[in-house]
Deep mutational scan, measured.
Amino acid sequence: RHRTTFTSLQLEELEKVFQKTHYPDVYVREQLALRTELTEARVQVWFQNRRAKWRK
């Protein structure tokens, strides 16, 4: 699998949602996936990684 490189616009969208909730439900993730043109799975993994980073 290749590494997904996020654009600054995608990161902006993702971070905006992360500020509101660290655990977006499937509906929120789907909406975010559509807005960022990423798959829902990529969005889910981004949140997992972002939460790990936040905990440190």
Rank of each mutant, 00 (worst) to 15 (best):
S8Q: 15
Q44D: 15
R50A: 07
V45Q: 12
V17K: 03
D25V: 02
K56N: 10
Q10K: 01
R29A: 09
N49D: 13
R55D: 15
E13M: 08
F6W: 07
T36Y: 10
E40H: 07
T39W: 01
R29D: 01
K20M: 07
L14S: 01
R29L: 12
P24T: 02
Q48L: 07
L38E: 05
E37W: 03
E13N: 00
E30M: 13
Y23R: 02
S8I: 07
T5Q: 14
Q19M: 08
R55G: 10
R35L: 12
R3A: 07
T21Q: 08
P24V: 01
R51K: 06
R50M: 06
T5H: 09
K20T: 14
D25S: 11
R50Q: 09
R50C: 06
T7H: 02
W54Q: 14
K16A: 08
K53H: 11
A33V: 06
R55Y: 09
Q44I: 07
L34Q: 13
T7N: 06
R29F: 04
Q44Y: 11
V28K: 06
T21I: 04
T39C: 03
W54Y: 11
F18L: 04
Q44L: 08
L9G: 12
K16P: 01
L14H: 00
R51P: 02
R42H: 13
T36N: 06
H22M: 13
Q31K: 10
Q44P: 00
H2Q: 12
Q44N: 11
N49G: 09
T36G: 02
V45F: 11
R29H: 02
L14C: 04
V17F: 07
T21A: 04
T36L: 14
E15M: 05
R51W: 03
L38R: 00
W54G: 10
V17P: 00
R55W: 06
Q48S: 11
K16E: 08
H2T: 11
Q44C: 10
R1W: 08
K16Y: 05
L38P: 01
Q48M: 12
E37F: 07
E12T: 08
A33R: 07
Y23P: 02
K20Q: 12
L32R: 04
R42D: 15
F6T: 06
Q10G: 01
T5G: 13
V28E: 12
Y27Q: 15
E30V: 08
L32D: 01
T7M: 04
Q48C: 07
Y27C: 08
R42S: 15
A52F: 04
R1P: 10
R3S: 15
H22I: 05
H22S: 07
L9D: 13
E40K: 06
L32W: 04
S8P: 14
Q44T: 12
N49W: 11
V26K: 15
F6N: 03
P24S: 02
L9W: 13
R42K: 13
R50G: 01
V17R: 02
A52D: 14
E37G: 14
W54H: 15
K20H: 09
V17A: 10
Q48Y: 06
L11Y: 05
T5E: 14
T4I: 15
T39I: 01
V17N: 02
L14D: 00
K56A: 11
T5W: 08
E15I: 01
W46L: 02
K53A: 13
T7K: 01
T7A: 05
K16H: 09
E37Y: 06
L32C: 03
T5Y: 08
A41D: 15
R35K: 15
V45N: 14
D25E: 07
L34F: 12
K56W: 01
F6R: 05
A52C: 09
Q44K: 08
T36S: 05
W46R: 02
L32T: 04
H2M: 12
A41R: 07
S8A: 15
K56P: 04
T21E: 06
E13S: 05
Q31G: 10
A52H: 08
Q19G: 09
N49A: 11
W54K: 10
L38S: 14
H22L: 05
K20W: 07
K53C: 07
L9A: 15
V26F: 14
K53R: 10
D25C: 04
T4W: 08
T21W: 06
V43K: 02
D25H: 02
L32V: 10
Y23W: 11
R50E: 10
E30Q: 14
R29Y: 12
R55H: 03
L34M: 13
A52N: 12
V28A: 15
L11P: 03
S8E: 13
Q44G: 10
W46A: 01
K56D: 07
T21P: 01
V26D: 12
E37V: 05
R1E: 10
E30W: 09
T39R: 03
L9E: 15
L34E: 13
A33C: 14
Y23V: 04
R35E: 05
Y23K: 05
Q19I: 07
S8N: 07
L38H: 04
Q19A: 14
N49L: 09
L38G: 04
Q48T: 11
V17C: 12
N49R: 11
H2G: 14
W54F: 12
E37R: 12
F47N: 00
V17E: 12
V45L: 14
T7R: 03
R51C: 03
L9R: 14
D25T: 07
K20E: 15
R50I: 02
V43F: 06
E40L: 08
A52R: 10
A52Y: 07
A41I: 05
R35W: 05
F18D: 04
S8K: 15
T7F: 03
R42A: 13
Y27G: 14
R35Y: 05
V26E: 11
L34I: 12
A33M: 12
F47C: 01
A33S: 10
W46H: 02
V17S: 05
V45D: 15
Q19P: 00
R29N: 05
K16M: 06
E15C: 03
L32H: 06
E30N: 13
V45T: 12
K16G: 06
V17Y: 04
E12Q: 07
F6Q: 05
E13H: 04
R3L: 14
F18S: 02
R3F: 14
S8R: 11
A41C: 10
T21M: 06
A41G: 10
Y23M: 03
E40W: 05
E30P: 01
K16S: 07
V43P: 00
H2V: 10
V43I: 09
R51A: 03
V26N: 10
T7W: 00
W54R: 07
Y23D: 06
W46D: 03
E12C: 05
F6A: 04
Y27T: 14
F6M: 09
A41T: 14
Y23F: 08
T36D: 01
H2P: 09
Q10F: 00
E12M: 11
K56L: 09
T21L: 06
V43G: 00
R50V: 04
E40V: 11
A41Y: 05
H22F: 05
Q48F: 04
L32G: 03
Y27N: 14
L11S: 09
Y23E: 06
L11V: 13
L9I: 08
D25N: 09
F18P: 01
R35H: 08
R42L: 15
T21S: 05
Q31Y: 05
V28T: 13
H2F: 08
W54C: 11
N49H: 09
Q31M: 06
A33G: 05
L11A: 11
H22C: 05
L38Q: 07
F47D: 02
T39M: 02
W54E: 15
R35A: 09
L38C: 08
E40M: 10
V26Q: 15
A52L: 07
L34N: 14
L11K: 08
T36C: 10
A41E: 11
Q10P: 04
E13L: 05
E12W: 06
T7P: 01
Y23A: 06
R3H: 15
L38V: 07
V43Q: 00
H22K: 14
K53W: 07
K16V: 04
K56R: 11
L11I: 13
Y27A: 15
L11D: 14
T39V: 02
T4R: 06
